[in-house]
Design a protein around this nucleic acid. Structure first.
Lengths: 195, 195, 195, 195
DNA sequence: TTTTAATCGAGACGGTACGTCGGGTCTTCTG
DNA sequence: CAGAAGACCCGACGTACCGTCTCGATTAAAA
């Protein structure tokens, strides 16, 4: 009896997915400017209320849309070489963050977050902290493996690593290229590299 | 001499000043949300065109308004003790950045900058780079005084120091407090401290 | 036989009643503005479909609701004195038409009827014509009793009597008071009074 | 000296005219249903605010639009024969009231007036009362000419004459044809005709 | 001075988006 | 299988800003 209910499939789940996809499409095509709820609803051929029913705020919608593309790139496999692994992870992140679907949405979220502390908290909780966390795990592993000094708490170091890259990407006109990443890692290793 | 010059009829430059001040006042009172050009002109009892004649963009206006409060806090005097000096400078910056007149304007600029690369460049050129620069000068002086290793280019290090603080302030819910600043400086000294 | 229903009790009859009552309650409380099908269904804790299943149109629902209060006031008993009887009937009608439950519903029906000829026909058939009819019966009785000229068809006269009052009530800011009613009856008697 | 300033021409007077015309056009084409402010603005290629700037309410706009067509038909010239003159006037009014541009607008006004006492008052003041008034003047002239009894106040009679016709037109499915008008006038003459 | 040319306040204007509401239709699930 | 609950598309509501534009009135510099 192959019952079809293994996925409960709440009523509008499909539509929710569609709306998020439309948001990404729109972002890729018209960029940050075209990301109005009105435009999204229009493009999705959906009443505005159908959007508002799902997300109380544009920021909330954008965060979910972000999630949708975000999770796809988290399948990296550490090799054990800390420097190489961090380098790889950062390059991947930056590459994703720079290309069309993600970049406009991310910037839109940043913009929204400036006027809405709640959105700011959500942004950090769901994305920035995640990146910090995965970075922290990597360096902690390296620390246990003796590659880093054992007498320091690396939590803040992880924030510095990530924060520097986000700062450069979002707030400066400079690109986050290999030079920048290497410079950052050099400083990190100089500070915390074992003996 | 029936000239009723009690009303001196201020000319252009004065009015420009007045508009910037109104922008700051509005920001302090109603916050980011109230910073529309419409509201600013209304509050200043000025035609909208008078605003547009001076600044092509909201971002441009906000940047100038920012400048107005910004320059007031740059009168710090280094003592020679690197750690203490940086600490002092960062605490001052953050304190200014957190209090009413500046914070809403800064966030508004950040928001505008997301959709406008030119504004992003201007933001970096006029503010972020300035802070990086003054930081760089300080650490370079210390380097020459032998407090820091002589074999490194500190340009990027200065960016890391500033970037980390901006990242935390603008994009996370965490406060930029003394703990954070000290943590950051510790990492910096561990990496680049002499011998 | 524990059947408690001497009447066949069609399933939804009670609910239909309840909906009509809710409509009247809502009209009394929030007036014409609050008379949306949405609000009625909400107030009755009923799905909108349950309303649409019963009435194809808001006008239809309102007409039925109107009926509900209307029939309660038709228990007048003519005395034989034409002038007094008409006066009494008109005063009653107007009094009912002016007070909360009925007035907003009536006006809502008028409004609906403007855009919907079918509703207009129904309004006339079920209410206006009824009033004209009962007026006609009274004057015809008086005519047969010799109180009115025998050589005229009073059908149109009845329409004039009623129409004038409705006109004043619905389309002018003037109240339909005793003065108005007496003036109208005077004119009527002057035209058709016997000899 | 052909000075061009005989008309001061306030800024948007032309546009106001255009909007009223568009309202009438729309009414003629799509009828009562299409008379949303949104549709009017769209059709006139005008921002919604441009409409709201001129009229606080849909009712106000419709009343002005009504005025525009209304005044064109008031150029009748009484002949002195009361019965014929009233007949002519009523026929003209009804004819105007029945044809496309006017009928949908009038009904829309009636509908709006039901929920807005102010609109109701305005409707009466600007249109209904005008008709009553011109009717009153005609019958008063006839009264002075000895065609009508001298001992009666005809104010209310004028209301009855007009009210009956409006009642029939707006609230019943019956047409206001010559039969109806003649019946009404017969009753009137029977009541107030001289000797 | 007188004229000319900016500059100003005020705000109209066509747009676009906001967030809310109601109209009708169509589903889903419960009793 | 009827019914409550409400999702859904649609489109109007009235408000707010955007950036451009016109309007007179008020000044400044040029004639």
């Amino acid at each position: 009896m192959p019952n079809e209910s293994s996925a409960p499939r709440r009523r509008g789940a499909v539509r929710t997915e569609a709306l998020l996809q439309v948001t990404l499409d729109l972002a890729a095509e018209v960029g940050y400017a075209g990301l109005s709820i009105e435009a999204i609803a229009r493009r999705a051929e959906v009443g505005k209320h159908t959007v508002y029913r799902r997300w109380p705020t544009k920021a909330a919608l954008l965060l979910d849309a972000l999630q949708r593309v975000w999770t796809r790139d988290l399948d990296y496999r550490p090799t054990g070489d800390l420097h190489a692994d961090l380098r790889e992870q950062f390059l991947r992140s930056v590459s994703a963050l720079t290309s069309p679907p993600l970049d406009p949405v991310y910037r839109a979220v940043i913009a929204e977050a400036q006027s809405d502390p709640a959105a700011r908290a959500a942004l950090h909780e769901r994305f920035l902290r995640t990146v910090e966390q995965s970075t922290l795990e990597q360096v902690t592993r390296a620390q246990r493996a003796g590659q880093l000094r054992a007498d320091v708490d690396l939590t803040f170091a992880a924030e510095v690593l990530c924060g520097t890259l986000y700062y450069r990407h979002l707030l400066t006109p400079h690109p986050v290229d290999e030079t920048a990443i290497d410079g950052l890692l050099d400083m990190f290793m100089a500070a915390y590299g074992a003996s």
